[in-house]
Nucleic acid binder design. Structure first.
Lengths: 226, 226
DNA sequence: CGCCTTGTTGAACGTTCGTACAACAAGGCG
DNA sequence: CGCCTTGTTGTACGAACGTTCAACAAGGCG
């Protein structure tokens, strides 16, 4: 819009060939662009900014493109969920599984500490990211399709965390209700994250991480011995 | 709408006087009706159901009434916040203050236990109620006016909880960081509440209350001695 | 009974929303 | 160079949105 307009009048036949008005992209590339733009809108204006007009303007494309690449706006929202939440959580699960399998390189407590720590990395424990989650939580509570996906995702994450906890507690001879502890830990992290997003003066990411470790260490013993 | 319609045709002059088409209410009464209807809409459909049409239909009044009693739809949202969240939290604070002042009737640990317990009462720890909070959290993160109100409210609640914690810990000779513990407790409760709303199979209100007490008792000693 | 206040109505308006679709053009291919 | 595929555009459309406001009428008062 702000670029220099190249002669608004109709081009004569003899004029030089006009520059391309747009570029064609592979379907995957364009989908990623739209998902990224939609995610950006969410992190700025919440679910109220999740509209065709704003997303397309943010992506720099025309209004018709979302319905060409996705099943309506709802379809795009599901893809944003998968791309943002699903991908990042599944990534955490996959890395945790890998660490727990490599018993030669990773002690159980180091693997658990790494999983806990990853919850508080700036990429994840950020305000932008939380605003996306907050918007999606509000939708998950209402949208059955998202709700089912979210349950499956959280179940997997909770199970992985419980396994990591048990892998530390059992050799130490500690009697721990690992699933319950995992559930409470996740609740604490989400709650601290929420508080931080609504009022950043209440808690720092460092303090939140300390609180998370303290909850676990109270039951399974020290995890941060470095 | 479902009432028997009394003769749709135009009434003749000689006909009996027609029944009132609506009833006039005091401003306070009508405001309460609209706030209640708006709250109901939020608890059912989230922030997406917070529209003039649905709220007025839910309240059984015409579309023009919201703008007559409130400063637009945003004004009504602020009133819903004050009515739902503000009122219930301030109520908890007031009761906690009263209990803590009546040292003859309430021991410090009983007062703290009562405050903790109130977080899990069915009136408060309910799915309907959480959907309202979830909707409002999403708005608080975006709306500066709501954000300021929310910070003030949570600061007051956190301070009261910290005082109740200190009132138990100090006589027992326990060294406790009461403000931090209060903050972590609130985060845990909100997180458990959130998890329960998104997937009720993960946690029960009873289990959530147990988790809350355990977090506090790990630092200040037993609270539930009955 | 008739007036008056004012809570209430409902239509009208301009805006924004999501979707559909015909027209367009970019880039590959022969 | 011209055709063809298909990603992209931009308009059109109906529905729903928030707001405004003139008209209405319910209920109190004299």
């Amino acid at each position: 819009m702000t670029e220099a307009e190249p002669a608004p009048e109709k081009r004569k036949r003899g004029a030089k060939k006009s520059p391309p008005r747009f570029s064609r992209e592979q379907a995957d590339v364009r989908r990623s662009m739209l998902i990224d733009a939609a995610t950006r809108c969410l992190s700025v204006g919440g679910i109220g900014a999740f509209t065709i007009d704003r997303i397309c303007k943010e992506a720099g494309v025309s209004r018709g493109l979302i319905n060409h690449h996705f099943e309506g706006l709802d379809g795009l929202l599901v893809e944003v969920y998968k791309s943002s939440l699903y991908a990042s959580v599944n990534n955490q699960i996959a890395e945790a599984k890998r660490r727990r399998a490599e018993t030669s390189d990773w002690s159980p407590q180091a693997a658990l500490a790494a999983l806990v720590h990853s919850n508080f990395s700036p990429d994840y424990f950020s305000r932008d990211n939380l605003l996306i989650w907050l918007s999606l939580w509000g939708e998950i509570a209402v949208n059955p399709r998202l709700k089912a996906a979210h349950r499956e995702l959280y179940d997997a994450y909770r199970a992985e965390l419980a396994e990591d906890i048990a892998a530390v507690a059992v050799p130490r001879g500690r009697q721990v209700d690992a699933p319950t502890l995992a559930r409470n830990f996740i609740a604490l992290v989400d709650g601290l994250w929420l508080e931080w997003c609504l009022d950043e003066s209440v808690v720092t990411p460092q303090a939140a991480e300390a609180a998370g470790f303290e909850m676990l260490e109270a039951q399974v013993g020290p995890l941060r011995d470095s």
